[in-house]
């Protein structure tokens, strides 16, 4: 019973209501309204500067909207609250790891920051195939290994909502496959996943729902089953071009 519909039912999932975020004179997100269904994987696509990372930061509570609000299962969220931070896991470009510490120590520290009393670190490390390197310092890890450890750290406290910013970038094949498996397992476990990615085909294959942003505005918001995998790339580029043209004509200048 995956809630993968786009009926604007605000009682399920992450609701984005007239979200606006401005940085000085630059508007990163304008009137973004959508519902990212709970217990499903939503892929967020868009060209550079579309506001995808900004959206993710708003969901994580690192940034606050200039206007608008975010809701979770119908109730307006205070994304800055400790309660919200306790239920989200964020995986971004930065690994948030401490190089002089061992893999186990990094996880242990993270667990204590979440107040987890008896975390199963071994299981967490095993899930990302790092159990045999548990005592080794992160400084000696490859990029792929660090990403895997970061993933383990993100999931350690069993978050309800997992936010990922371009997690496939720079991953080796092994780590990428592992990540896909983990994401599917999360979805099967009724967790909500928001995946920002440039990888159109991989993202589409994983996603139950697709959101697309161009220049801070929503141009596509639909369940993935309504999209055709073969033609999606074309459609993507068409949407980007259309939005660019629209922007150029309204502002009267290319920017």
């Amino acid at each position: 019973m995956n809630a993968s519909s786009t009926r604007s039912s605000h009682d399920g999932g992450l609701g984005l209501h007239a979200l606006r975020r401005r940085f000085g004179a630059h508007v990163a997100l304008r009137d973004v309204a959508a519902t990212l269904p709970a217990g499903a994987i939503t892929a967020v696509f868009g060209p550079n500067g579309a506001g995808k990372s900004t959206l993710l930061k708003l969901l994580a509570g690192s940034l606050q909207p200039t206007d608008g609000s975010i809701s979770w299962k119908g109730a307006t969220l205070d994304t800055r609250s400790a309660e919200w931070r306790a239920r989200i896991g964020v995986l971004s470009h930065d690994t948030h790891l401490y190089a002089p510490l061992s893999a186990r120590e990094c996880l242990s520290f993270h667990a204590r920051m979440h107040g987890l009393r008896s975390p199963d670190l071994d299981a967490a490390l095993d899930r990302v195939d790092l159990l045999d390197r548990a005592e080794d310092r992160v400084a000696g890890f490859s990029r792929g290994m660090r990403q895997r450890l970061a993933l383990a750290r993100t999931l350690l406290h069993d978050p309800d909502v997992v936010l990922l910013d371009e997690p496939f970038t720079g991953l080796d094949a092994h780590a990428a496959q592992l990540l896909e498996e983990v994401l599917r397992t999360l979805r099967d476990g009724q967790r909500t996943v928001v995946l920002v990615t440039h990888a159109l085909s991989e993202g589409l294959a994983l996603a139950d729902h697709v959101l697309m942003l161009v220049r801070g505005a929503v141009v596509l918001d639909t369940p993935s089953e309504r999209l055709e995998a073969d033609t999606f790339a074309e459609r993507y580029h068409a949407l980007v071009d259309a939005a660019e043209i629209a922007r150029a004509t309204t502002t009267g200048a290319p920017s």
Binding site: S62, E83, A86, H93, H96, L97, H110, M113, H114
Partner: peptide, 14 residues
């Protein structure tokens, strides 16, 4: 380094 502080701030730790 590695944005560790950001990660720390994303936890519920006060």
């Amino acid at each position: 380094a590695d944005g560790a502080m950001t990660g720390l701030l994303l936890t519920p730790a006060p």
